[in-house]
Each structure stands twice: as C-alpha cells, then as structure tokens.
C-alpha cells in the first residue's frame, strides 16, 4: 500500500503516529500537478523542457571530454603528467554528472551533510596509500619514492623478504 492510495482512516496512519509519533503526510487528491513544489522540482512544461536542454548540453560536454581523454592518451605521456590530466578530466566529467544528472547543484542540506561525511571517509581511504609511501621510505631504505619502486642502489629484493618488490606477483 502506498501513500497515494484511497483513504481509509485507520490504515493510513502509521503505528508511530497512532502512538503519538510524528505526523504523517496527508492522503489528498494526487491527480494533478500541485505536488510540484513538494517534490522539489518545478514540473511545468517550460521548466522541464529547459531541464532537458540542460541535460543534452551536459551529454555533449561529457562526450567531448571523453574524446579529449582518449585523444591525449594516444600521446603516451609520462605517467605523472598522464595521471594529472586524466584525473582532472575525470573529475570534471564526474562533477558534471553529479551536479546536473544527480541534481546536486540544488539539493537539500541533509544530502550535502551525508556527502560531506562520505568525502571525508573517502579522503581517509585515499590517504592510506599515501601514508604507505611514507612508511615505505622509512622501512625500506633505498625505496625510490618518486618512481614508486626500489632504486637501483637499493638492496636486491630477494635479500629482503619484506621488500615490496617481492610482495607483488607481477
């Protein structure tokens, strides 16, 4: 049963309301467009058509940015430059999807609060590998932090069972 079902007084009230909980939404006439503002979106034909145009512009932008990413990858740039360019383009594309397709450009405060927490913990996850590199430099003398691998002068991997070179299967 849903909240827009035909009203029948006792059943439309959730148990928490009957027990003095928060008030429930009314079961009114759901046939018209009057809920537009309650839904958080303007459902007038003009507004929706404007939104559709916006979605198409975002699609074109995403397609162009994808083309640019692939085109740049054909140059086989050094890994550090390639990573920066790829992440900048991907972050731009991701922002477009989140802002317009997922409507984050005009969302409620609670959703932003959830996302702030998410971004924080995501940051912690990304900090892990970063910290590992710091540890690696301390624990494995001769670890080339810039190249992300043991330097030529480092002790041979087979002499140190804890060396990262011996812990990968590649």
């Amino acid at each position: 049963m849903t909240d827009n079902a035909a009203p029948h007084p006792p059943a439309h009230m959730a148990p928490d309301q009957q027990a003095g909980g928060p008030p429930q939404e009314p079961l009114g006439d759901h046939s018209g467009h009057d809920h537009a503002h309650e839904l958080g979106h303007d459902n007038s034909p003009e507004a929706v058509k404007k939104e559709i145009r916006k979605y198409l512009y975002v699609f074109y932008s995403l397609a162009v940015l994808t083309g640019i990413t692939v085109w740049i990858s054909t140059f086989h740039l050094p890994i550090h430059i390639a990573v920066i360019i790829a992440l900048v383009v991907a972050a731009t594309k991701g922002s477009l999807v989140a802002a317009f397709f997922m409507h984050l450009i005009s969302e409620r405060k609670l959703i932003y609060a959830v996302l702030v927490l998410t971004v924080f913990f995501f940051g912690v996850l990304m900090w892990g590998p970063w910290h590992h590199r710091y540890d690696a430099q301390r624990e494995w003398p001769g670890y080339d932090l810039h190249a992300g691998k043991p330097s030529a002068a480092a002790e041979p991997a087979e002499q140190n069972p804890n060396h990262p070179a011996t812990t990968t299967t590649h």
Partner: peptide, 19 residues
C-alpha cells in the same frame, strides 16, 4: 487486513526535507 502504510514515499519529510 490493513496494509501497512509506508510514509513519505512521495512527499518530503518535514524534518529531512526529502522523501
């Protein structure tokens, strides 16, 4: 048999601002 009503599937909850 009264089916259980699931609240706020359409309208925003006043305290959260979203359905």
């Amino acid at each position: 048999h009264h089916e259980i009503e699931i609240p706020y599937t359409v309208h925003a909850r006043p305290d959260t601002g979203v359905y």
